[in-house]
């Protein structure tokens, strides 16, 4: 079944998982409550596991993670956004896990090269979506202060959500249908959480493109510098 894995697709999905896992890993030791340290680490580990499988299908996982330049990464700009406050992290999780769940459900139902991986990952992602949804409710409908923070986070990340539905070469899914389903599911969670659906555009007004084209936001370069520094300082070494 897995005769040819489309490289662009493996990198897109793998980089999404890798980069978001890295961002979640930055929470270690900083979470708002001890129970949440454990929860965030579980999600980060699920994503890192997905990334390793995906990247390994098209090359050496470490070469791909540590030796590519920024422009060669194919992840969405959404996942590279800095953690911000806990509201930003939760909204990033909400937007991304809703997307990833729809995408992996479709891939798992098909018979393409990612069906096996997606079938396993979709269960993990269902939990991530639930986690983000539960927190969205509590923060949106918690205190005035938490509501305010959530409104800000929802709005700030909104312009990174359009990119998710740009077709990726090698993934045979209904992108437009996914976009509609995504909007419905996110809107439903936000409504229950007493949060308004952000207005404004869902993509940046820049013709150069976005993450899937290898064009990233400023914080990503710094993230990669930190992530790759040690590995690159010892060329050829094994760890």
């Amino acid at each position: 079944m897995t005769t040819t894995v489309p490289t662009a697709a493996a990198l897109a999905l793998g980089d999404d998982a890798l980069v978001l896992s890295h961002r979640l890993g930055e929470w270690a030791g900083h979470a708002p409550v001890l129970e949440e340290e454990v929860a965030l680490a579980n999600i980060a580990l699920d994503l890192l596991g997905q990334a390793r499988v995906l990247l390994s299908t098209v090359g050496d996982e470490d070469e791909l993670a540590y030796l590519r330049e920024e422009r060669a990464f194919r992840n969405l700009q959404l996942v590279e956004q800095p953690n911000g406050d806990f509201a930003h992290t939760i909204v990033r999780q909400l937007y991304f896990s809703a997307y990833q769940h729809l995408l992996y459900s479709q891939l798992a139902a098909g018979d393409g090269p990612f069906a096996g991986l997606a079938a396993k990952a979709v269960k993990e992602v269902a939990y991530h979506r639930d986690h983000a949804g539960q927190w969205t409710l509590r923060l949106g409908d918690g205190t005035d202060a938490s509501h305010e923070r959530m409104v800000r986070a929802c709005t700030a990340l909104w312009r990174f959500t359009g990119e998710m539905f740009q077709p990726v070469d090698g993934l045979d899914v209904d992108w437009a249908g996914m976009d509609t389903a995504w909007l419905e599911s996110v809107e439903a969670v936000l409504r229950r959480a007493t949060l308004p659906l952000p207005e404004g555009p869902r993509s940046g007004a820049w013709s150069a493109g976005a993450g899937r084209q290898g064009v990233h936001t400023e914080p990503f370069g710094r993230m990669l510098a930190e992530m790759q520094h040690l590995h690159r300082s010892h060329p050829g070494a094994s760890w």
Partner: peptide, 16 residues
């Protein structure tokens, strides 16, 4: 463990 409500208690228990 500590949790604000039953739903989160279940989830925290699962994670921990």
């Amino acid at each position: 463990l500590h949790a604000p409500d039953a739903e989160f208690a279940l989830r925290n228990a699962r994670d921990l």
